[in-house]
Simulated scan of single mutants.
Amino acid sequence: MRIGTLGNGLMAEALAGQWVKAGHDVMVGGRDPVRAAEVAKRIGAASGSLSEAAEYGDGVLLAVPADVAVDVAAMVPAGRTVIDCTNALDHRDFTLAHPGTAEAISRAVPEVQVVKAFNLAAETVWRNPPVGLGVPICGDGGMELVQELVRDLGCVPVEAGGLRRAKLLEATAALAIGIWVGGGDVRGMFPRLADAFGAVLPGQP
């Protein structure tokens, strides 16, 4: 698969590096061609401008600050899948500055398929992802492509619903980051559903 990254920061480097190892062709794109080339060299990828990376990939990782995500995503050609890993955090109180980033991208660029994924963990996790880690993904199309890329990390794709539910992933990230910054440990927050809700899940016989 051909994958372009819109952005050449830590998340782009971590995820793209894993996809290169899995055998995909990757182009790292950025506004700064020198920085993009440096990142690409470290992970064994090609480099280019943002527009070149947008044109290059069947799947396009959107790894830029959330406040420019919509504008950058507009570079992606029709029919491609945009993987949105952004979190629009207000770092003053770790709430969402702009809820619904993934939906906003889809409204602004309706000819692409937007999938929210990879936003619940920091780049350090994606450099060496735990085998079997569940990765929630939300989207109305392009899910198969993202599922493949999740599996290539040794992780498990977890379908979390349509794109309308992407805002819940964004809110979950804000909640978890705020707890972590405050000194809390979020790793034990999610017990097995059978333990959380009883032996039988709601709505099940």
Rank of each mutant, 00 (worst) to 15 (best):
M1K: 08
M1E: 05
G4N: 04
G4V: 02
T5V: 03
G7R: 04
N8I: 06
L10E: 15
A12D: 02
A14I: 06
Q18G: 15
Q18I: 08
W19C: 09
W19L: 06
K21T: 07
A22P: 13
A22Y: 05
D25Q: 14
V26H: 06
G30C: 05
R31I: 04
D32H: 06
P33M: 06
V34T: 15
R35A: 12
A40G: 08
R42S: 10
I43W: 10
I43F: 07
S47N: 08
S49K: 05
A53R: 01
A54L: 06
E55Y: 00
Y56P: 07
G59A: 15
G59C: 11
G59H: 09
V60E: 06
L61K: 01
V64H: 09
V64C: 05
A66G: 11
D67I: 02
A69S: 11
V70L: 05
V70Y: 03
D71V: 04
V72F: 09
A73N: 01
P77G: 01
A78E: 13
A78S: 08
G79P: 05
R80C: 00
V82T: 00
I83E: 08
I83L: 04
C85S: 12
C85I: 10
T86F: 03
R92F: 04
R92G: 14
D93A: 08
F94W: 06
T95A: 06
H98R: 11
T101Q: 09
E103D: 02
A104F: 03
S106R: 13
A108D: 01
V109N: 13
Q113H: 12
V114Q: 07
K116N: 10
K116V: 06
F118I: 07
F118K: 04
A122Y: 04
A122G: 15
T124P: 15
V125W: 07
W126A: 06
R127E: 09
R127Q: 10
N128Q: 08
P129N: 11
P130H: 05
V131N: 12
G132A: 01
L133M: 15
P136N: 03
C138I: 00
G141P: 09
Q147R: 09
L149D: 14
L149S: 07
V150G: 01
R151E: 15
R151C: 02
D152A: 05
G154W: 01
V158Q: 04
G161H: 10
G162T: 04
R164D: 14
R165G: 07
L169K: 05
E170I: 01
E170Y: 05
A173K: 03
A176D: 14
A176Q: 14
W180M: 12
D185Y: 02
G188V: 03
F190P: 11
L193T: 14
A194P: 12
D195I: 14
D195R: 05
F197I: 11
F197Q: 13
F197W: 10
G198Q: 13
A199I: 13
L201S: 12
L201R: 11
G203L: 08
Q204Y: 14
Q204H: 15
